[in-house]
Design a protein around this nucleic acid. Structure first.
Lengths: 108, 108
DNA sequence: TCGGTAGTTCAAGACTATCGAACTATTGAA
DNA sequence: TTCAATAGTTCGATAGTCTTGAACTACCGA
Protein backbone atom coordinates (compact mmCIF):
# COMPACT_ATOMS: atom_id res chain seq x y z
CA UNK A 1 0.00 0.00 0.00
CA UNK A 2 2.79 2.38 0.99
CA UNK A 3 0.92 5.40 2.26
CA UNK A 4 2.48 8.80 1.66
CA UNK A 5 4.22 10.40 4.64
CA UNK A 6 2.20 12.87 6.65
CA UNK A 7 3.98 15.82 8.25
CA UNK A 8 2.08 18.15 10.55
CA UNK A 9 2.14 21.86 9.78
CA UNK A 10 4.31 23.78 12.20
CA UNK A 11 1.31 25.30 13.97
CA UNK A 12 -0.23 21.88 14.53
CA UNK A 13 2.76 20.54 16.43
CA UNK A 14 1.96 20.16 20.12
CA UNK A 15 4.39 20.36 22.98
CA UNK A 16 3.00 17.18 24.50
CA UNK A 17 3.62 15.10 21.42
CA UNK A 18 7.14 16.48 21.03
CA UNK A 19 7.93 15.57 24.64
CA UNK A 20 6.26 12.22 24.25
CA UNK A 21 8.32 11.46 21.16
CA UNK A 22 11.57 12.43 22.87
CA UNK A 23 10.77 10.60 26.12
CA UNK A 24 11.67 7.26 24.58
CA UNK A 25 15.39 6.39 24.84
CA UNK A 26 15.46 4.81 21.40
CA UNK A 27 13.88 7.84 19.75
CA UNK A 28 16.08 10.27 21.64
CA UNK A 29 19.05 8.27 20.36
CA UNK A 30 17.76 8.61 16.81
CA UNK A 31 17.26 12.35 17.18
CA UNK A 32 20.73 12.77 18.59
CA UNK A 33 22.24 10.93 15.64
CA UNK A 34 20.28 13.07 13.22
CA UNK A 35 21.40 16.19 15.06
CA UNK A 36 25.03 15.12 14.87
CA UNK A 37 24.97 14.38 11.15
CA UNK A 38 24.77 17.49 9.03
CA UNK A 39 22.13 16.41 6.54
CA UNK A 40 19.53 13.68 6.16
CA UNK A 41 20.06 10.04 7.08
CA UNK A 42 18.23 6.89 6.13
CA UNK A 43 16.37 4.94 8.78
CA UNK A 44 18.85 2.13 9.34
CA UNK A 45 21.71 4.55 9.71
CA UNK A 46 19.95 6.75 12.23
CA UNK A 47 18.45 3.94 14.31
CA UNK A 48 20.49 2.00 16.88
CA UNK A 49 22.01 -1.19 15.49
CA UNK A 50 20.00 -4.39 16.02
CA UNK A 51 16.70 -2.59 16.34
CA UNK A 52 14.12 -4.68 14.50
CA UNK A 53 12.98 -2.99 11.33
CA UNK A 54 9.34 -2.94 12.30
CA UNK A 55 10.21 -1.18 15.54
CA UNK A 56 12.39 1.26 13.61
CA UNK A 57 9.56 2.04 11.30
CA UNK A 58 7.25 2.66 14.23
CA UNK A 59 9.66 5.06 15.96
CA UNK A 60 10.24 7.07 12.80
CA UNK A 61 6.50 7.32 12.37
CA UNK A 62 6.12 8.70 15.90
CA UNK A 63 8.90 11.24 15.35
CA UNK A 64 7.39 12.25 12.03
CA UNK A 65 3.88 12.67 13.38
CA UNK A 66 5.16 14.66 16.34
CA UNK A 67 6.73 17.05 13.83
CA UNK A 68 10.31 16.40 14.89
CA UNK A 69 11.58 14.95 11.65
CA UNK A 70 10.78 15.24 7.98
CA UNK A 71 11.00 12.07 5.87
CA UNK A 72 11.32 11.78 2.16
CA UNK A 73 11.48 8.72 -0.04
CA UNK A 74 14.61 8.60 -2.19
CA UNK A 75 14.36 5.51 -4.30
CA UNK A 76 14.56 2.51 -2.04
CA UNK A 77 15.41 4.42 1.09
CA UNK A 78 13.88 7.11 3.26
CA UNK A 79 15.90 10.19 4.10
CA UNK A 80 15.12 11.68 7.49
CA UNK A 81 16.08 15.12 8.73
CA UNK A 82 15.32 17.11 11.86
CA UNK A 83 12.93 20.03 11.51
CA UNK A 84 15.24 22.02 13.80
CA UNK A 85 14.55 25.55 12.65
CA UNK A 86 10.80 25.09 12.63
CA UNK A 87 10.59 23.53 16.09
CA UNK A 88 12.98 26.10 17.49
CA UNK A 89 10.63 28.76 16.21
CA UNK A 90 7.54 27.08 17.63
CA UNK A 91 9.00 26.00 21.00
CA UNK A 92 12.14 28.09 21.52
CA UNK A 93 14.85 26.36 23.49
CA UNK A 94 12.99 23.15 24.16
CA UNK A 95 14.60 20.71 21.77
CA UNK A 96 17.99 22.38 21.92
CA UNK A 97 18.03 22.22 25.72
CA UNK A 98 17.02 18.57 25.61
CA UNK A 99 19.75 17.71 23.13
CA UNK A 100 22.33 19.60 25.15
CA UNK A 101 21.22 17.89 28.36
CA UNK A 102 21.33 14.47 26.79
CA UNK A 103 24.86 15.09 25.57
CA UNK A 104 25.95 15.91 29.08
CA UNK A 105 24.08 13.00 30.59
CA UNK A 106 25.93 10.57 28.37
CA UNK A 107 29.47 11.59 29.29
CA UNK A 108 29.88 11.17 33.03
CA UNK B 1 -0.04 0.44 54.25
CA UNK B 2 1.03 3.98 53.39
CA UNK B 3 4.55 3.58 52.12
CA UNK B 4 6.96 6.46 52.63
CA UNK B 5 7.62 8.68 49.63
CA UNK B 6 10.67 7.94 47.57
CA UNK B 7 12.54 10.82 45.95
CA UNK B 8 15.44 10.11 43.62
CA UNK B 9 18.75 11.80 44.33
CA UNK B 10 19.51 14.56 41.88
CA UNK B 11 22.15 12.53 40.08
CA UNK B 12 19.75 9.63 39.59
CA UNK B 13 17.23 11.70 37.71
CA UNK B 14 17.19 10.77 34.03
CA UNK B 15 16.28 13.01 31.16
CA UNK B 16 14.03 10.35 29.69
CA UNK B 17 11.90 10.01 32.78
CA UNK B 18 11.60 13.79 33.14
CA UNK B 19 10.41 14.06 29.55
CA UNK B 20 8.13 11.09 29.99
CA UNK B 21 6.57 12.65 33.08
CA UNK B 22 6.01 15.98 31.33
CA UNK B 23 4.69 14.44 28.12
CA UNK B 24 1.32 13.79 29.72
CA UNK B 25 -1.10 16.74 29.44
CA UNK B 26 -2.52 16.16 32.91
CA UNK B 27 0.90 16.09 34.52
CA UNK B 28 2.11 19.11 32.58
CA UNK B 29 -0.97 20.91 33.88
CA UNK B 30 -0.05 19.96 37.43
CA UNK B 31 3.52 21.13 37.00
CA UNK B 32 2.34 24.42 35.56
CA UNK B 33 0.08 25.01 38.53
CA UNK B 34 2.89 24.21 40.93
CA UNK B 35 5.18 26.56 39.03
CA UNK B 36 2.62 29.35 39.22
CA UNK B 37 2.02 29.05 42.96
CA UNK B 38 4.93 30.25 45.03
CA UNK B 39 5.15 27.43 47.55
CA UNK B 40 3.84 23.89 47.99
CA UNK B 41 0.32 22.77 47.11
CA UNK B 42 -1.70 19.77 48.13
CA UNK B 43 -2.65 17.21 45.52
CA UNK B 44 -6.27 18.19 44.98
CA UNK B 45 -5.34 21.83 44.56
CA UNK B 46 -2.62 21.15 42.02
CA UNK B 47 -4.52 18.56 40.01
CA UNK B 48 -7.17 19.52 37.45
CA UNK B 49 -10.69 19.51 38.90
CA UNK B 50 -12.70 16.31 38.45
CA UNK B 51 -9.65 14.11 38.12
CA UNK B 52 -10.39 10.91 40.04
CA UNK B 53 -8.30 10.67 43.17
CA UNK B 54 -6.70 7.39 42.22
CA UNK B 55 -5.54 8.88 38.93
CA UNK B 56 -4.28 11.95 40.78
CA UNK B 57 -2.30 9.78 43.11
CA UNK B 58 -0.79 7.94 40.17
CA UNK B 59 0.29 11.13 38.39
CA UNK B 60 1.90 12.56 41.51
CA UNK B 61 3.78 9.32 41.95
CA UNK B 62 5.13 9.53 38.40
CA UNK B 63 6.21 13.15 38.90
CA UNK B 64 7.81 12.28 42.22
CA UNK B 65 9.71 9.29 40.88
CA UNK B 66 10.89 11.28 37.87
CA UNK B 67 12.39 13.77 40.33
CA UNK B 68 10.24 16.68 39.26
CA UNK B 69 8.39 17.23 42.53
CA UNK B 70 9.06 16.68 46.19
CA UNK B 71 6.13 15.51 48.34
CA UNK B 72 5.78 15.72 52.08
CA UNK B 73 2.98 14.56 54.33
CA UNK B 74 1.54 17.35 56.45
CA UNK B 75 -1.13 15.83 58.62
CA UNK B 76 -3.92 14.65 56.42
CA UNK B 77 -2.61 16.22 53.25
CA UNK B 78 0.43 16.00 51.03
CA UNK B 79 2.32 19.13 50.14
CA UNK B 80 3.96 19.05 46.72
CA UNK B 81 6.62 21.40 45.43
CA UNK B 82 8.69 21.54 42.25
CA UNK B 83 12.37 20.67 42.57
CA UNK B 84 13.11 23.59 40.23
CA UNK B 85 16.59 24.53 41.32
CA UNK B 86 17.82 20.95 41.38
CA UNK B 87 16.47 20.06 37.96
CA UNK B 88 17.71 23.33 36.52
CA UNK B 89 21.15 22.40 37.75
CA UNK B 90 20.98 18.87 36.37
CA UNK B 91 19.34 19.67 33.02
CA UNK B 92 19.81 23.39 32.45
CA UNK B 93 17.05 25.05 30.49
CA UNK B 94 15.00 21.95 29.87
CA UNK B 95 12.12 22.36 32.28
CA UNK B 96 12.11 26.14 32.09
CA UNK B 97 11.93 26.04 28.28
CA UNK B 98 9.10 23.53 28.44
CA UNK B 99 7.13 25.64 30.91
CA UNK B 100 7.68 28.75 28.86
CA UNK B 101 6.62 26.97 25.68
CA UNK B 102 3.50 25.59 27.30
CA UNK B 103 2.49 29.03 28.48
CA UNK B 104 2.75 30.35 24.96
CA UNK B 105 0.93 27.38 23.49
CA UNK B 106 -2.05 28.03 25.74
CA UNK B 107 -2.67 31.64 24.79
CA UNK B 108 -3.26 31.79 21.06
C1' DT C 1 13.50 -10.44 -15.01
C1' DC C 2 15.47 -11.73 -10.87
C1' DG C 3 17.64 -10.99 -6.43
C1' DG C 4 18.83 -7.89 -2.92
C1' DT C 5 18.07 -3.91 -0.11
C1' DA C 6 15.08 -0.60 2.49
C1' DG C 7 11.16 0.03 4.66
C1' DT C 8 5.89 -0.85 5.72
C1' DT C 9 1.89 -3.30 7.41
C1' DC C 10 -0.40 -6.55 10.23
C1' DA C 11 -1.46 -9.31 14.20
C1' DA C 12 -0.47 -11.05 18.79
C1' DG C 13 1.37 -11.03 23.27
C1' DA C 14 3.34 -8.00 26.80
C1' DC C 15 3.03 -3.90 29.03
C1' DT C 16 0.78 0.47 30.91
C1' DA C 17 -3.03 3.81 32.06
C1' DT C 18 -7.43 4.98 33.97
C1' DC C 19 -10.80 4.73 37.29
C1' DG C 20 -14.21 2.77 40.77
C1' DA C 21 -14.24 0.60 45.22
C1' DA C 22 -12.34 -0.36 49.43
C1' DC C 23 -8.88 1.12 52.49
C1' DT C 24 -5.62 4.07 55.83
C1' DA C 25 -4.24 8.18 58.36
C1' DT C 26 -5.11 12.46 60.44
C1' DT C 27 -7.95 16.05 62.26
C1' DG C 28 -11.67 18.37 64.66
C1' DA C 29 -15.96 18.19 67.05
C1' DA C 30 -19.33 16.15 70.19
C1' DT D 1 -12.65 8.94 73.54
C1' DT D 2 -15.32 8.10 69.81
C1' DC D 3 -17.08 9.46 65.42
C1' DA D 4 -17.38 11.62 61.03
C1' DA D 5 -15.04 14.10 57.55
C1' DT D 6 -11.10 14.97 54.73
C1' DA D 7 -7.01 13.75 51.91
C1' DG D 8 -4.67 10.24 49.78
C1' DT D 9 -3.37 5.32 48.75
C1' DT D 10 -3.91 0.68 47.10
C1' DC D 11 -6.01 -2.86 44.39
C1' DG D 12 -8.12 -4.98 40.46
C1' DA D 13 -10.32 -4.87 36.05
C1' DT D 14 -10.79 -3.00 31.60
C1' DA D 15 -9.00 -0.48 27.80
C1' DG D 16 -5.46 1.16 25.30
C1' DT D 17 -0.37 1.20 23.60
C1' DC D 18 4.37 -0.86 22.51
C1' DT D 19 7.36 -4.32 20.54
C1' DT D 20 8.30 -7.66 17.38
C1' DG D 21 8.19 -11.54 13.88
C1' DA D 22 6.24 -12.61 9.49
C1' DA D 23 4.63 -11.38 5.26
C1' DC D 24 4.52 -7.74 2.12
C1' DT D 25 5.72 -3.64 -1.29
C1' DA D 26 8.89 -0.68 -3.81
C1' DC D 27 12.98 0.30 -6.08
C1' DC D 28 17.56 -0.53 -7.96
C1' DG D 29 21.33 -3.01 -10.33
C1' DA D 30 23.07 -6.97 -12.76
Amino acid sequence: MQRPFVHPAIEDITLESVLYALADPTRLEIVKKLAAGACGMNCSAAAPADLPKSTQSHHFQVLREAGIIRSERRGTEVVNALRCAEIEKRFPGVVSAILKASEKAKKR
